[in-house]
Design a protein around this nucleic acid. Structure first.
Lengths: 212, 212
DNA sequence: CGATCTCTTGACGAAAGTCAAACTCAGTGG
DNA sequence: CCACTGAGTTTGACTTTCGTCAAGAGATCG
């Protein structure tokens, strides 16, 4: 969200290798992390090992807008790829929010965006079939990457570092049941190779995903 | 959230009978509604008729914190019972948010609460069984009602105006499959009668709901 | 090179959905 | 007072979707 947030804010940069934890559930933090490079995921882990990904974080994403007003993280944040992220001091960020109305506007937009994403996921998990969920996840990622200029406009190709267990955890399915993926590939909707996804039939693809 | 929000804010009171719409998806509003009395639900409707309840609104609830910064409602709000609600002018409310730090604090707390609720629902829909979802819904309602002093402390009895289709829409199940309810009643965990629910075995009940 | 991830497939079972019928319970109007 | 209606609930038989388990085949990485 904070492209062009060139205000006087200090931020320190950190790097985390793939699969490592960026912040833990119930940890206390005086900083707010923002992803600069790589993919991450916020995930809830249940006592019996079941996992649910709440959101996949892409470059430019604030880990959670709630962290601006609460120092207790409410979920685990894991790096999917190697991740470079910056951290803003909460007190400073909060203070400058009041001093800079345009920053505040950007922030409230990020928050609404976050809520819309969450609501969409609720509908997907509550009412969509396995096909619809997976198509929905990929359409969503494609749109968000496109907004960042991270989809090759000609070939519709993009980075796609997700493992099947990521897809399963994000869609509420099991890794094995992601055999729907194979069906998609066989029917020529998209292809995945070398951690990279190409959409072959954008129209058909979007028609599978859930429409409101 | 706004108990004790005794600032100079104007609010007009409206009344809506059960089953009527309080605000429609994509409607534009210059006011922010707050439930004063009765139960309501924010719900997403898909083109083919599938429905998903995003949240059940109880007395004292802001319909959505996002409405403070966006005039476009992102979901339908329906009255479950007869509902009395107040409406604040957005511009006024927003302005006084900056003038009154304690109101801002209350508001950011409401927002975090809203996000925690949404995340919990995501986990329930993504990873919980039918039993766990229904128990989770009821435990959640019980806790929220208790915080409002709306549960009889001795008998653990509370208003419960939800129809089975509400429960189904809230848990991502079908009305018929809510036969799990019958199982619960048979096994003596709670009873429902005359739009009123009594928890008979609180401990067992909470142990069924999903624990993080 | 093992050792660990990762993906794929298939057989089987469990959970949840669909369809249909009967029953309850308020209204409602003759 | 009594059919008539319509929404809501309950039940059972049957189908579909998805999960579980297990095995094997590539990857990938020290």
């Amino acid at each position: 969200m904070p492209q062009g947030t060139s205000i006087e804010l200090q931020q320190s940069i950190r790097i985390i290798p793939a699969r490592q934890v960026i912040c833990r559930e119930h940890d206390l933090h005086d900083v707010v992390p923002v992803i600069c490079e790589g993919w991450a995921a916020s995930v809830i882990t249940l006592s019996d090992g079941r996992r649910q990904i709440l959101s996949i974080l892409l470059p430019g994403d604030l880990v959670s807008t709630a962290l601006l007003f609460d120092d207790r993280a409410d979920c685990l944040v894991e790096a999917i790829t190697d991740v470079r992220y910056g951290t803003f001091k909460r007190t400073e960020l909060k203070a400058s929010l009041f001093r800079h109305p345009d920053l505040f506007a950007k922030f409230s937009k990020a928050w609404i965006e976050e809520k819309v994403q969450a609501d969409q996921l609720i509908v997907d998990l509550g009412r969509a079939t396995a096909e619809e969920r997976i198509a929905g996840l990929i359409v969503d990622l494609k749109d968000r990457l496109a907004r960042r200029g991270m989809v090759q406009s000609g070939t519709m190709e993009m980075d796609f570092p997700l493992r099947q267990h990521h897809i399963a955890d994000a869609t509420g399915l099991t890794p094995v049941h992601v055999k729907v993926l194979s069906d998609f590939r066989r029917s020529g909707v998209f292809k995945i190779r070398d951690r990279s996804l190409t959409i072959l039939d954008p129209f058909k693809f979007r028609s599978i995903a859930l429409t409101r």
